[in-house]
Simulated assay, not measured.
Amino acid sequence: MALLWRRQSVLPGFGLAMGITVTYLSLLVLVPLSMIFLKTATLQPAEIWAVVTSPRAVASLKMSFVASLIAAGINAVFGVLVAWVLVRYSFPGKSIVDALVDLPFALPTAVGGIALTAIYAQQGWVGRFLYPLGIQSAFSRLGVVIALTFVGLPFVVRTVQPVMEELEVDQEEAAASLGAGRFEIFRRILLPALWPSILTGFAMSFARAFGEYGSVVFISGNMPFKTEITPLVIMTKLEQYDYAGATALALVMLLCSFVLLFLINRLQSWSGARVSSRSAVEAPQPASERSAGARAPGVAS
């Protein structure tokens, strides 16, 4: 077995590199996460259930889940549109728009939350037009959705954009020459090719929004049972020195994150298999097979 393992490890230094990798991941990921399980284990199962199913915790989990789902859905639609514009059109300032897509990655979430609050507040640039219409954009559930949409948009755009760049326009032009409308071209040609990447971007945007804290805490108003998210409830319990209760809620979010990561990996695997099968189907037929088929046109299958 040892000889077989050495034969499979072609590159030198595998043992040292593997040891450094495991140590690095253990110190930064495994050990901190294991402390959540150990701290939660100090509670009895009935106590954990009481913390997780308390009305405030359930309301915050529902708020986080629903708002993240809505924000990911919005990003799935408009993220595809942004990727389409960046890939298919050339216009002045395109590089600036492309860089702005990555702004939520580089910008501290607290800064983004303060900026969104200033813009969507009652006297803000956008809020002053929404409040007279009866739309409360800041310090409401709508504000939570706006903040989560802001942090999740790059995931959809950067997932769909590379796939869209690889699509050839020949099929679209052929369909248009045959009388197909724009919606039909998108539904029957573009959407099947983009659907796996859209699903992956949607899942990544949802996972990012579900655990968001910094950009939401300012614009939400933090009203219990209305706009309070689960990370804020965890912070409140920490401030009250209820470490076991905070880790119990953190454990719930950790398990949800594991499920989301599993779904994302499955979507990526399915996307890769779909692209590979499609490439195999669209691969040009070898010249020998084409010539053989041409010499025997009457052979029955």
Rank of each mutant, 00 (worst) to 15 (best):
L30W: 06
P32Q: 03
M35F: 15
I36W: 02
I36N: 03
T40I: 02
A41S: 05
T42L: 07
Q44G: 13
P45C: 09
A46C: 00
I48C: 09
V52G: 00
S54W: 09
R56P: 04
A57Q: 01
L61S: 06
S64L: 00
F65R: 04
F65V: 15
A67C: 15
S68V: 03
L69D: 00
I70R: 05
I70A: 13
I70E: 14
G73M: 10
G73C: 11
I74V: 14
V77M: 07
G79H: 07
V80G: 07
L81A: 13
V82P: 09
L86A: 06
V87A: 14
F91W: 04
G93S: 01
G93I: 07
V97F: 14
D98C: 08
F105N: 07
F105H: 01
P108C: 10
I114M: 09
I114D: 01
I119R: 02
Y120I: 01
A121G: 14
Q123G: 02
W125N: 00
G127C: 04
L130N: 13
P132T: 11
Q136H: 13
F139E: 05
R141I: 12
G143S: 00
V144Y: 14
V145N: 02
G152K: 03
L153R: 05
F155D: 06
V157Y: 15
R158A: 06
R158F: 07
R158V: 11
R158I: 05
T159M: 11
E166D: 14
E168H: 13
E168M: 07
E168N: 13
